[in-house]
Design a protein around this nucleic acid. Sequence first.
DNA 1: CTGAAAGCGCTTACAG
DNA 2: CTGAAAGCGCTTACAG
Lengths: 346, 346
Amino acid sequence: MKKKTTLNDIAKTLKLTKVSISKALRDHPDISEQTRIKVKQLAQEMGYRPNLIARSLTSSKSKTIGVVVPKIAHNFFAHVVGGIQKIADKYDYEILLTVSDENEELEKQHIESLVAMQVDGLLVSVSMETKNTEIYQWIREMQIPLVFFDRYIPDLGFNSVIINDKEAARNGVEEMIMRGSKKIAHLAGYEHISIGKERRLGYKDALEKQGIEYDPSLVVEGGFGENSGYHGFKELASRGVEFDSIFAVTFPVGLGSYIAMREVDANMIDNIAMLAFGDSGVRGILPYPRYYVDQPGMDIGKKATELLLKEINGVVEPENKLVYMDTQFVETGKNFPVSEKNLLMT
Amino acid sequence: MKKKTTLNDIAKTLKLTKVSISKALRDHPDISEQTRIKVKQLAQEMGYRPNLIARSLTSSKSKTIGVVVPKIAHNFFAHVVGGIQKIADKYDYEILLTVSDENEELEKQHIESLVAMQVDGLLVSVSMETKNTEIYQWIREMQIPLVFFDRYIPDLGFNSVIINDKEAARNGVEEMIMRGSKKIAHLAGYEHISIGKERRLGYKDALEKQGIEYDPSLVVEGGFGENSGYHGFKELASRGVEFDSIFAVTFPVGLGSYIAMREVDANMIDNIAMLAFGDSGVRGILPYPRYYVDQPGMDIGKKATELLLKEINGVVEPENKLVYMDTQFVETGKNFPVSEKNLLMT
DNA sequence: CTGAAAGCGCTTACAG
DNA sequence: CTGAAAGCGCTTACAG
């Protein structure tokens, strides 16, 4: 790499000192109109760009946000990251993006190196493996701003931007029941992860409200990816219990179960109704899931980033607040008519 | 934010100097066994983490890679970013991710600020608006390592990791013809973007090879997003020309055209065969596109990153080399049987 | 209006 | 084996 031109380079050819150059470039009132113009012109000619690393070191602000997502190649998280980007752009922050791949150790390592890189704050969605909260307690002690999104750990003193998982699950399952579902299986997420726990509670609530008895043999617990859905369905099928519908904890789980379903009995596809959290990103075109809870990924990303920036600027205090984003129950091809206004505007 | 402990903090409580601490922590042979142990223990207790910003300033290596993608909430790019991450993790680099949103000006701004942040190298996929190449020439002059992926600008002296767009398009269109397509419309991308130009050339080649006359009224030029597909189809339909098949330059274009198709005549859906570059990420389940060119997003990301790291380490010279990644022609539900081994392993 | 001094947290090269 | 010096590129606070 070629050597970049520095304040000193400009200073020398102008027989001034780097301090004056620094001031001139930042329109400091100290500097006279004419030298300011002269300086800026030369800076331009010499292709000067401030070294932001050096600036960070003096200002102890890096204008950088660290992000940890469990997965990136998944519709929902990709949209969240898109939202984060939009707000970051607006306020002139850059994003250090890391992916935990649902791995607790990787998550911890990434957080540590982001902190070592002096990010001004962190945005994290917890991996499905994470059980040890030490690293987060340390972040809290260090008073490093952090906002959770989608998957959070409660009672650690951090704000979280999430959807109302329990409520949305209850509503979704009730809608299925009103549309004729009688025996609804649940491919559930781990209980120790917020979304797994809450969605399952919503499922139970819906059954109770509709006077249907909760049957544990209709529930299979697992992770949040396609593999879990695939094996979850196989497990379910092997139990020999009857069901006419499935509530999948995430879209990937629904997708995995659908693939398993094809193998077990292709006819099921038309006869088993499926509800999932999240969609494929190809709205209304995919026949599965028949019903889904539309999660506003981009809005979650935006909101979480705005909140984090407020904490960074000391406008908002970190606490255990949960900020809920609205979701929508969608019946494929019905209340989401495919038309121009639903284009993703890309 | 609480003040982090520094080398000096450790030095003081140990009545040593920061230099010795620095050496001790990095296992420099200068330091005696016992003080090394003492230092490390105290560092641990005091929760010391090196300030990577400071280290960057002295070492003039930031261990950071800047990435510019046109879109992030799109299956293909999300997979590419996933691949970039994997390799970055492996070699202990962090990723500064930016999104140009297909906007030339934003792209330029992001590149400038990434350079100002002293990234060790850049990975970029050019926005569909980009016509001015000045910023890239400057990058070249500054000898900052840069590798293009998917969408590149030729003859600027950078290596690019791409698919063989022309070849894959030719092959795909020929496959359609062999399956009975006779009049294939093309929703094409802009000519000034590599993938737009090459895919169109492939389309023409296929027609020629199969003895079908090229008909300009079957080609609509536009961008690479859903909107372009939507309006492209409407334009096509308005021309009153006959066609039995569509070749869409990207998956989003195919999706947009499909939505428009539904509006114009829902029956078309079963009668018009569609070929697109890229898929939905929900392999084999979506009825559209009937045919697609499977683009190995993750592999492209990995390969581009590996190449970039080699340039950063001076092992590979930047030149105008094009590295091609393999693609595969897929007929939905046919040569991509839905089964466990096709799970995305998530 | 311009400059000399000090410092951000670290590393490298040179003394002792 | 330990330390004093110098520097990475910038900014802040204080003199003149």
